[in-house]
Amino acid sequence: MTIGLEEFLIVGSLLFCMGLLIALSKRNAIGVLIGVEVMLNAVNLTLLSFARFTESAQPIAGHTFVVFVITVAAAEVAVALALAILIYRNRETVDVDQFTLLRS
């Protein structure tokens, strides 16, 4: 049996949907961030699958894009975790249901 582009894309999309489920449903703000990281990983996997399996004038483009995604993910997680710690310091919770500062 051969492994082609479709199998990689299915694994990537399954991973993405799991990440989406985590990001949408977790109560803890850090859990939501974990979901976002899983989604970014799935996107990287999909980008590299396309770079490896499809015709392209510049096959290196997919690899370059993955480098940028990893960079932006690192920057995003640093700021988001700093925000989580800041909110924890003020409200003593990281429960996203309790983040209702803008409602009142």
């Binding site: 974990i34 997680v77 003593e92 919770t93 996203v96």
Partner: peptide, 22 residues
């Protein structure tokens, strides 16, 4: 990234280690 997430978990102790869903 994973170590950063672990540190964030450790720095929010009173929020608990709860990973339940909304």
């Amino acid at each position: 990234i994973a170590v950063l997430v672990l540190f964030a978990v450790l720095l929010t102790p009173r929020a608990g280690r709860d990973n339940s869903e909304t």
